Computed example of a mutant assay.
Amino acid sequence: MHDLLVNQTGRSLQSEFGLSATDYTVLAELSRDPDSPLRMMELARVLGWEKSRVSHHLSRMARRGVIARNECLDDGRGAYVTITPAGRAAIEAAAPHHVEDVRRLFLDHLTPGQTALLAEISDTVIEHISRL
């Protein structure tokens, strides 16, 4: 189910906004606090990605101008990642459409009870995984 939803919403993001599902995920995370850049390793941790995956994906996004990577002055091995004005415009344009897709493809088909149960199950699984 997860893969089907991600694939369908990803196709829509790509065709209408030129963003892959992973682009959207990165931009959404970076837009949470645009005044506070994230260390690349912190972004990798939050997304649950390997360092190499983050590095390669961010390189592609930087070439397109939607994110910027800046050296960490106090640690030459690290880098900060920020969303650019083009990235902010992209996520602001895509977000309402993405939310509508998620509602149309997923939430609209659940009863209030099913939604509450899904939230309870999700919280339990997330809590367990967070302790690992």
Rank of each mutant, 00 (worst) to 15 (best):
A68S: 12
P34Y: 14
R32F: 15
Y24V: 00
R63Y: 13
L58P: 03
S59A: 04
L73H: 07
L73R: 07
H56G: 00
S59C: 03
S36Q: 14
M61S: 02
N70Q: 11
K51M: 03
A44L: 11
R69Q: 08
R60I: 05
L58I: 10
L47D: 05
L38E: 02
H56E: 02
A68Q: 11
A68F: 11
T25K: 06
L73G: 00
I67R: 04
L47Q: 09
R63K: 15
M40A: 07
R69H: 04
P34Q: 11
E29G: 01
E50G: 07
V26Q: 03
P34T: 13
Y24P: 00
L43D: 02
D33L: 12
H57A: 01
S36H: 14
R64S: 05
V46F: 13
L38R: 07
L38M: 10
G48P: 07
V26H: 02
L73V: 04
L38G: 00
L30S: 02
P34V: 15
V46M: 06
L73T: 01
V54Q: 04
P37C: 03
H57M: 04
M40Y: 09
C72A: 06
N70S: 08
L73C: 01
H57T: 02
S55P: 02
V26T: 04
V66T: 11
L73Q: 06
L47G: 06
L38P: 03
T25W: 09
S31V: 03
R64H: 10
S59I: 10
G65W: 15
N70G: 04
S36D: 08
M41I: 13
A62Y: 11
A68K: 14
G48I: 12
V54P: 03
W49L: 08
W49T: 01
M40C: 02
M61P: 04
E42T: 13
M61D: 00
L27W: 10
T25C: 03
L27M: 09
L73K: 08
K51I: 11
A68W: 08
